[in-house]
Every structure is written in C-alpha cells, then in structure tokens.
Simulated scan of single mutants.
Amino acid sequence: MTYSSIKEFHEIASSPRKQIDKYLAEGKKIVLTVPYYTPDEIVYSMGLVPMGTWGADMELNRAKEYFPAFMCSIVQSILELGISGKFKGASAIIIPSLCDTLKTMGENWKYAVPDIKFIPMTYPQNRKPAYGIAYTRAGYERVIKDLEECTGAKFSMYRLAESNKLYNEHNEAMRRVDELLARHAEVTVQERSDIFASANYMLVEEHTALVKKLIAELEASEESVGNYPVVVSGILTDMTGLSEAFDEIGIHIVADDVCAHSRQYRTDVPDGDDPLQALAVKFANTDNCSVLYNVEKPRIQWIIDIAKERGAKGVVVVMTKFCDPEEFDFVCIKEACEKADLPLALVEVDRQMKQFEQVKTNLETFRDMLMF
C-alpha cells in the first residue's frame, strides 16, 4: 500500500539544503543543532529554525586536516559539510559535549568554518541530582546569551513554554507512529528512516502535522506483520545502502533503540512554572542511551523488554565505527540477548561506506538464523 505522506517525508529527508534555502527565503535564521539532545526548544522559541545535522554519506577530505582518521565519521562529515559550504546562510551551530569527539569539534569548527558561530552546550555527566540540573540550566542560559548576540533574537520564558508544548506534542506523535510502524511491515526500512530524518529539517509544527497525517493513514489501513521482525539499536542507521540491505532481505524493524530515531522522542518536558528549569529537568530524566552516564545501564534491559513487547525475533546492533560509548555497551547487550535467548547481529558502518555487501551477507546469515 502507498501512503501519500511517505513521499513528502522522502523529499524532505533527501534535500536538507533545499529546506535551508526555503527558510532563508522566508526571512528566517537557521541555527544548526548537532547531536545529541541539543535544546531545539530554546532555538525554536526565539523565532529561529533549528536545523539538525547528523552529517552525510560522503568522502572526507578537508575534515581530515582537523581530525585523525579514527574519529567518528558523523562528526567528521558535519565538519566536511561546513567547510564545503553546504551550510552557507546558517547563523550559528550548537555543539554539545556528550562524547570525546564532540568535545574537540567546536574548536576545530571555529577555525574551519569561521562564518558560522560555534555555540557550545556543556552537559553534566551527573545530570539527575539538583546540582546536575542547575549545571544544565546554566548551559542553556549560555546558549540563550550566545544566540541573542549572534542572531539578534530575543528570549522569552512565555515563548519557551509554548515551544515546550509543541515539542511534547511532536514527541507524542513520533511515539505513536513508531508503535504503528511495528504493525505495518509494508512500510520499508528506508521509508521508516525518512520519517525520522525529515524531522531534522522541518519546523516542529510542520513535521507534527505530516506525522499525524501518516498516523491517520496507518490507523485506517490493514495491519501486516513481517516474517523477520527485529529491534535495531545504534547511533545512526539512515545510510541508504544499509536500508536497502534490510529491505532486500525482508527484515522488518518493529522497534528501534537508535539515537537519531526514537531515542530523541521518549522524554517530554515536564509541567512547571519555570519552562527553562523544566527543560533542564527533561534532560535529567532522559536515559537509556550510551552517551548518557548511568552506572546501572538501564538501556540494556530496555532493549530486551521492547523486543519482547513488540514480538521481535532478534536484535541488530548497528555500530558506528570508532564510537566508544556504543562499543562499551555492546558487550552488555550481547550478554543480555544471550540470557533472553534473542539472536543478535552486529554490523559496522560509517559515513564513508560505499559498498554494503559485507553488511548484507551478515544480515542474510542473521535472517537465516531467525527462520529456525
């Protein structure tokens, strides 16, 4: 079955530059937001357009002048895009500090792309105690000050409260579409990826409206279940070659533990009289992610629980090369899957990959395991 909104998601996901030009033509200012957990709510509340960037599948050239080869290709490709002018017209870039590679990116960006202001967002490791929440809030205040200086926009607590509500509404819609996609195997892995990727390049209310349109279409259609339902886990899984491999083999994603996809939408901003404090509490409440410190590692049990809840036959971990936080968690995921009698596959990817034959062979073997 063909859903009318699916084509719209694909067109937007495949042409982020077109979206930048569209908003610039409307007189809006663009602020690039780098993963993970950048406070888009603040950017949007100031009348600016938060434009998420997870890099792109491309050959790295100039970025290698600033990063050694073993650094994460997501971060390197973001810098490559900046150096090559793909973000021309953007006013600023917000870069968080949630992994070692991101901590080095900001200083490199200042020299490599001087026309787009670097704004740091420093998050605490111990984010849940009161002092951690206060630290996060102070980081947000720094971001607000820098945005006001470089864009001329003004911050308002009232507008932030309204922004928080809009983003909560979007979270709810994304969680609902995730539930429905688990029961609609006719939606391909590539189409599923487009739904999530397009959110990076649209104003929140525009994407929410499009997602709600798809939700209505899915709810009105007959459900279908794939032969090989799996949970996919990782940082980023939107490489076209990877999606094509999943679709060709017939694997159906019934849930994801992917940072670029569903992880972004699990936690809402809580109610409160102080919307900036509430936003800091949201980050404190965010969990089940390799880049967020938690000695208990609840993410591992979350993967097992969602696999059982959605009827998954196995788990596929998509490992971004040189991503230390994900590599550390993989051992725990592997042990948990073995105890739960869930088959597990590991595939390794990066932003420079052109050939996915080895990945496809790995997934074909994994599919054959699921048949028995």
Rank of each mutant, 00 (worst) to 15 (best):
E244I: 03
K154Y: 03
T320E: 09
A209S: 14
F322M: 04
L181W: 00
V281S: 04
K313H: 09
N362T: 15
E172T: 08
I94D: 05
F67S: 05
I116F: 10
I195W: 06
L242K: 01
S262W: 14
T104V: 14
I74L: 12
P39V: 08
M174E: 02
P275N: 07
S262C: 14
W54D: 00
A63M: 00
A185E: 05
P50L: 06
S5D: 05
Y66R: 11
L180R: 06
F87C: 11
F9E: 13
S77I: 03
R299W: 09
Y123V: 11
L160N: 12
A173F: 06
D305H: 01
P298I: 02
G27K: 06
A312Q: 12
N362W: 08
F283K: 00
F196N: 04
I215M: 14
P120S: 10
A199R: 12
F67I: 08
D40P: 07
E172C: 06
G250M: 12
E186N: 13
H170W: 14
P35A: 04
G139H: 07
D247P: 01
T53G: 10
N108K: 14
I300F: 04
G85P: 13
V143H: 08
F118E: 13
G152Q: 12
K213L: 07
E107T: 11
K334A: 15
V189T: 12
T122Y: 11
E65N: 15
Q352N: 09
C259H: 11
L32M: 12
L102D: 11
V211R: 04
A13G: 05
A199W: 05
M174C: 14
V331P: 00
K88A: 10
I251S: 01
V75P: 03
V347W: 01
T237F: 01
S262L: 14
M371E: 15
K145N: 10
R127S: 06
F283Y: 15
K117Q: 13
K88S: 09
S77H: 01
K103G: 03
V113M: 06
A25F: 06
F67K: 04
I195L: 14
E26P: 10
S5F: 06
L236K: 03
S198H: 01
R192Y: 05
R142P: 04
L102G: 07
A197I: 15
R266H: 12
E223L: 08
R266Y: 13
C337P: 12
V269L: 12
D368P: 04
K154S: 15
S97Q: 13
S14P: 01
R310C: 13
H261L: 03
K308I: 09
A185Q: 01
I6F: 05
V258F: 05
V34Q: 11
A56M: 10
E59N: 08
V211N: 07
I83W: 06
I6L: 13
Y23G: 03
Y131T: 09
V318L: 00
V231W: 02
D368S: 13
Y140Q: 07
Y37T: 13
T361A: 02
N61W: 03
A209I: 04
Y167P: 00
S45C: 10
D341H: 07
L102N: 09
P114H: 02
V317A: 05
P124I: 13
A63Y: 01
H252W: 04
S45M: 05
V291M: 10
I235G: 06
V232D: 04
R263M: 10
K7D: 12
